[in-house]
């Protein structure tokens, strides 16, 4: 349908076209949920069948029931909770440290080119290094305690946060900067009122992506040298030949990262109300 009689009608028609009918959207969301659930159940069913019928030896893959029993055990003894807590603490320490350094630095590099010119070579050289390559040096410098785990998370996270922050800062609409200047904004006011809020959505989504990266860093660090944490559980279980516990550890990581991600999303919506209704 094309409405050309007046701009207003045209805009109205577009708005109607853009907003899907609510009940349809609701139905689709429900269907999506049901399909997702069914697919997980089917997977568990096939897995169960494969192990129960002996198609796959328990040496290679334990049955879902064995994994569930192991999960119950570790939950009862509190081992799993302690591991989640230990890993979370390391992630958050490293992640917040990285954010505390990289966000201000990224904003500075975004608005002031000499800073970018000075720091850019190091970013280019450090970015290709996986966090795992920092393990020998960090163990030498910091031992195998908490500081070393935090350092691995930090080294694996800060560059991503930095890059996201620089990009978001540079992408603030120059027209808005012009408008603010025209309304009498000083440098400080421009930073506080325009550049920071303008870059905030991009910075937050960068932090969200990086949070998942931080988790993979901590697990790596824990698998190499740690007594506690989800990574350590998996590694120890491997040494003991306890395959169900390996899978419990892996599931533990998935669920914890999912929960952390959901919390981050909630926080994001709270912090940037003007983007709440944008399609995602």
């Amino acid at each position: 349908m094309v409405v050309k009689s007046s701009g207003g009608a045209q805009i109205a028609a577009l708005e109607v076209a853009a907003a899907p009918r609510p009940w349809r959207e609701w139905l689709r969301r429900r269907t999506r949920l049901v399909l997702g659930l069914l697919s997980v159940l089917a997977f568990l069913g096939i897995w169960n069948l494969a192990t129960a019928r002996g198609w796959i030896s328990p040496v290679f893959l334990p049955s879902p029931a064995a994994v569930a029993a192991e999960a119950g055990n570790t939950l009862d003894t509190g081992e799993l909770w302690r591991a989640v807590l230990a890993s979370s603490e390391r992630v958050f320490a490293g992640f917040f440290l990285a954010a505390a350094v990289a966000v201000p630095l990224g904003v500075l590099m975004g608005v002031w080119w000499p800073a970018k010119a000075i720091i850019d070579p190091f970013v280019s050289l450090l970015r290709p290094l996986p966090s795992i390559t920092w393990i020998p040096l960090t163990i030498l410098w910091l031992g195998i305690g908490e500081a070393q785990k935090t350092a691995i998370v930090f080294m694996g996270s800060w560059i991503y946060i930095l890059i996201y922050t620089i990009e978001s800062t540079k992408r603030v609409d120059p027209l808005l900067i012009r408008a603010a200047r025209n309304l009498g904004a000083t440098d400080v006011a421009l930073m506080r009122e325009v550049i920071l809020p303008g870059a905030l959505p991009g910075i937050l989504s960068g932090l969200k992506v990086t949070l998942a990266i931080s988790w993979s860093c901590v697990i790596t660090a824990e698998m190499v040298a740690a007594q506690t944490g989800l990574g350590a559980i998996i590694w120890r279980a491997k040494d003991w030949g306890n395959l169900p516990l390996v899978l419990v550890g892996m599931a533990g990581i998935s669920v914890t990262v999912l929960v952390a991600d959901t919390l981050a999303e909630l926080l994001e919506r709270l912090l940037i109300p003007w983007e709440r209704r944008r399609p995602r």
Partner: peptide
């Protein structure tokens, strides 16, 4: 940039976070 000459932008240029 002269604040005494206030510009009304064609594309509005409103601050979306305000």
């Amino acid at each position: 940039i002269e604040p005494r000459c206030g510009m009304v932008f064609q594309s509005y240029a409103l601050f979306p976070w305000k």
